[in-house]
Amino acid sequence: MSRRLLASLTTLLVCGGLAAPVAASAAPGSAARTAACSAPNWTAGQWYPAGSVVRYTDGRYYRAEHDNPGYDPVISTWYWEPYSCEGGDPAPSGFVVSEAQFERMFPNRNSFYTYSGLKAALSAYPGFANTGSDTVKRQEAAAFLANVAHETGGLVHIVEQNTANYPHYCDTSQPYGCPAGHDAYYGRGPIQLSWNFNYKAAGDALGIDLLNNPFLVQNDAAVAWKTALWYWNTQSGPGSMTGHTAMTGGHGFGQTIRSINGSLECDGRNPAQVQSRIDKYRQFTGILGTDPGGNLSC
């Protein structure tokens, strides 16, 4: 497990939608949808119980997934979900990987890593696998999942296997320390989030108190996937760009390896590990029916 020195926070963009006005003769259930579409404006600091629907400042609607004291719906995506006035369902994610393709990629996965958990996490970073051409979208999804497969042994491991490392992931120089315990910030989830400062940064970005509750990453599939997407979309690690930028900017899969574990694998340090990631990426682009592109190595 490498030490990933991550910076924090990103601006999250979440989409929603508005329905057409409901006629007087509308079918049963329309009144509820009309009420949702005329929901009150979101107010910072106001208490919202789970199920509350609000109109955000950009005109889009959000529904509280969990009770919260007025967290910003665009930032605190664990507490809020995009809400469509048409039927009251969350806005669709439009993910380029089908459930059947996901199962082909991870035939031996741990049941914790659900496809539905991944889909639920997509609202946190709607630009992921949804930017550029269809080819680029599929390449980014394949790149992310290939690195995830490498990090977790094919989505088998939820937590870091080397327990001897656990006490090492507490940076006591941080002013907030390690409130969950000095050995509580070991690697968890699809990209094996580790270190107290990374849990703090990811939690702040996602609106989840992961510093005090790091175990959420191994107990809640959507939270686990969100931490991986947080890293992918906002952190460059030992590289010079995020995984998202590497794939959407045409820099190639090799730069995603560098951003995740480049200090230990790239520039000839561990060519076997690099090749393992590349092989998995080629396999996944094949499953998605797209070309892997160039610049695969680092």
Rank of each mutant, 00 (worst) to 15 (best):
L155T: 04
G127N: 08
E81K: 14
L6R: 05
S8N: 06
G154E: 11
C178W: 12
L122Q: 10
P92I: 00
T227V: 12
W78G: 03
S8R: 13
Q273P: 06
D72F: 10
Q255H: 02
G189M: 11
P82S: 08
R188E: 00
Q273K: 15
Y113P: 00
P107Y: 14
G189E: 09
T290R: 11
C170N: 03
G243W: 01
W230E: 06
R60G: 07
G59F: 02
D67K: 13
A272I: 04
A31K: 09
T34L: 15
A64H: 05
L13N: 01
Q174Y: 12
I278S: 03
Y71K: 07
T172R: 13
H182N: 13
Y166H: 07
P49I: 00
Q101E: 11
S123V: 14
A201L: 09
L145S: 08
V148A: 07
E81W: 13
A100P: 01
D134K: 12
F284Y: 12
D183V: 04
C15D: 03
A246D: 10
R109W: 05
R269W: 06
Y56V: 07
P49R: 01
G252Y: 02
P271S: 10
N130V: 00
Q161H: 03
A143H: 11
S276G: 15
K226T: 03
N165K: 11
L288Y: 09
L18P: 04
G45Q: 01
N108E: 09
R33N: 13
A27F: 09
A7M: 09
I257R: 08
L193K: 09
R4G: 12
Y125Q: 07
A202T: 14
A39Y: 08
V148E: 05
I75L: 08
K280I: 04
N212V: 02
A142F: 02
S236P: 03
T248E: 11
S38D: 06
V223G: 09
P292G: 05
A143W: 06
V274T: 13
T163R: 10
T248A: 14
V136W: 00
A180Q: 03
G187I: 13
W230F: 15
W195P: 10
A36C: 09
T57G: 01
A205C: 06
T131S: 10
Y169I: 07
G154C: 00
D67R: 03
P69G: 14
S52F: 11
Y71A: 11
Q273T: 07
K226V: 00
S133W: 06
D183M: 09
N261Y: 04
I260N: 03
L12R: 15
V217W: 14
W232Q: 14
K280P: 00
R109P: 01
P82N: 07
E99K: 10
Y186A: 14
M105H: 14
H157D: 15
T242K: 01
A272H: 07
C170L: 00
N68K: 10
A27S: 05
G70W: 13
F112K: 10
